[in-house]
């Protein structure tokens, strides 16, 4: 048995010279780890095809502006100062809603995940909220809060709250029973248990929710910026539609894409630091 594993391991570790790496990858059943940068192969290919189609005349500027045109327009708008106030207005709304939503989502998840009263009172309500499309709340929220900033931030807040709550709550409830037993045999107090066992255990789930939330807050924003506003990326895009300026619409789409990617990358960076204990010697 031992000899078998050793000789098997030997062939894997010492491939024939000149074929280094080839043997291991071709023997693999699961796909290997993608080299850095290749994750963007798909998007880059799409942009190249899109640009080519526009240059070769297959794509009229009235249908869709070429990426190069859009980027030029974007720089122009940035340079003459028309873009930044809109971006700032949108970011203000999105991140205010995000902040409040994450805060409330976490607080509710903790209350519901760590106490039975909380579970009884909160979980059902959030599950019901989850079933209602956020946008269906707009008419009611307009009646309550008017058509100003408060309404927009509130809608984003409710949209963000749900995934944050659901994932964090599930992580708290799905706590490793073995860790609970350990805590009992170590005689931990409830607060020691929450600080050292429950919360760290729920952290991965929280980060999943945060990655959903940072993109979700921008998603809701576009629709909201259709309603009574003179600022924001969504407003810019809708005005551009009236004028048939597809380049500005593409600028807006690109901004959303870049912001989404950057936000996600930021969360992943924090996540990698916070969960660094997961790294074993082998990885």
């Amino acid at each position: 048995m031992n000899d078998m594993t050793r000789s098997h391991g030997g062939t894997l570790l010492d491939p024939a010279p000149g074929r280094t790496g080839k043997t291991t990858t071709s023997n693999r059943l699961a796909p290997g780890k993608l080299p850095r940068g290749l994750q963007l192969a798909g998007p880059v290919l799409l942009v190249v095809l899109w640009e080519a189609a526009a240059r070769l005349g297959y794509l009229s500027p009235h249908t869709l502006a070429a990426p190069s045109t859009a980027i030029a327009t974007g720089f122009e708008m940035f340079a003459d100062g028309t873009l930044l106030p809109h971006l700032a207005a949108s970011a203000g709304r999105a991140y205010a809603g995000l902040f409040l939503g994450v805060l409330a989502g976490v607080v509710l998840a903790l209350a519901s995940g760590l106490t039975m009263t909380g579970e009884a009172l909160i979980d059902g309500l959030v599950q019901i909220k989850r079933a209602i499309p956020t946008l269906a709340l707009i008419p009611l929220v307009i009646l309550w809060l008017g058509i100003g900033e408060a309404m927009k931030i509130f809608i984003i807040f409710t949209a963000v709250l749900v995934p944050v709550y659901v994932n964090t709550h599930a992580a708290l409830r799905g706590i490793d029973i073995g860790h609970v037993e350990l805590a009992r045999t170590l005689g931990l107090t409830r607060s020691e248990f929450i600080r050292n066992v429950a919360l760290p255990g729920a952290l991965p789930g929280f980060f999943v929710s945060l990655r959903l939330a940072v993109t979700l807050c921008w998603t809701s924003l576009v629709v909201l910026e259709l309603i009574n506003t003179q600022t924001g990326i969504g407003y810019l895009m809708n005005r551009a539609r009236d004028w048939g300026q597809t380049d500005i619409i593409v600028v807006g789409i690109l901004i959303y894409a870049v912001l989404g990617l950057l936000s996600d990358a930021a969360v992943r960076m924090v996540e990698a630091r916070a969960l660094s204990y997961r790294r074993s010697i082998g990885s």
Partner: peptide, 24 residues
Amino acid sequence: NVSVLFQDARLLPWLSVIDNLTLG
């Protein structure tokens, strides 16, 4: 004063070894 040794070492992955020992 009872202590339990589990089959899986049951160390909390987010605590360093020494913090696992001193917990509680």
